[in-house]
């Protein structure tokens, strides 16, 4: 059954990361298939953020190899990660509060018009395309020229997600996107995450709380003490079991067999 499946979008094999004498990751295998939402779970200090920072080029692994669309790649800078189509949405770092929605949306890759030897920003085009792009994944905004500071936390996350979808990214990494949000706003963000998947993106959803991600994730990867506890499809495990594994690292008997087969 596994052979017929296409190569995963991202595969990380045997990742080891040492900070001096401390081993943050002790040989982790991790993969994300196409159009899959993976919940990356682990307690604080489990190593999940180190793993993601390796994937986004913030850290380089001590040992191990990353494959993107089947080809081995080295991701040595955040820029390199963006180049191959990995977009990360950090909780507080996604948007500039005092800039307008459309300027945020296009930040770093602004639309310009040539005006003699100069490139001048095309404000109108940016505003219209921002509105259209966000509407495309179901986000309604009042006015693209409005400052991001006027928006709620959920709206801000969704704009960052909309941006990743629009710019044709392949992998979207959400770092604790919902931990500071109300229940209603969390629901909205999960909704847009699902939309992003429908648009062909794969998503890694990092959290320490299973309740945040159980609704949308296809699969859970649980990390503890720098090791992977296992991969579990949603239909295989209950929310309770996942929460238990995150806390204790003990895999229930019936699941242990399944993961050995794999």
């Amino acid at each position: 059954m596994f052979e017929t499946k296409a190569t995963p979008l991202v595969e990380m094999r045997g990742i080891v990361k040492q900070f001096g004498s401390v081993e943050a990751l002790r040989g982790v295998d991790f993969h994300v298939d196409r159009q899959e939402i993976v919940g990356l779970l682990g307690d604080n200090g489990a190593g999940k953020s180190t793993l993601i920072k390796i994937l986004t080029g913030v850290h380089t692994p001590t040992r191990g190899q990353i494959y993107f669309e089947g080809k081995p790649v080295t991701i040595d800078s955040p820029h390199a990660a963006r180049e191959i189509g990995i977009e990360t949405v950090y909780q507080d770092l996604a948007l500039v509060p005092l800039m307008s929605i459309s300027r945020n949306f296009w930040l770093g890759q602004e639309l310009t018009r040539r005006f003699g030897p100069f490139k001048v920003l095309d404000h109108n085009a940016m505003a219209t395309s921002t509105r259209e792009a966000l509407l495309d994944i179901g986000i309604k905004i009042r006015n693209p020229d409005e400052a991001v500071a006027m928006m709620s936390g959920g709206e801000r996350q969704s704009i960052a997600i909309g941006r990743a979808v629009h710019f044709g990214k392949k992998l979207l990494i959400l770092d604790e996107p919902t931990s500071a949000l109300s229940v209603k706003q969390t629901g909205e963000v999960l909704n847009y995450t699902r939309r992003a998947k429908e648009r062909g993106l794969s998503v890694i959803f990092i959290t320490h709380n299973i309740a945040h991600v159980h609704e949308v994730a296809d699969r859970f990867t649980i990390i503890r003490g720098g090791r992977k506890i296992g991969d579990f499809y949603k239909h295989e495990v209950s929310e309770m079991e996942v929460a238990h594994m995150v806390m204790t690292g003990e895999v229930p008997e019936r699941l242990r067999l399944g993961s050995q087969e794999e």
Binding site: V96, L98, L107
Partner: peptide
């Protein structure tokens, strides 16, 4: 306004 966001967008 937000150096982190600027850096994340490749600035």
């Amino acid at each position: 306004g937000n150096p982190g966001a600027a850096r994340a967008q490749g600035i």
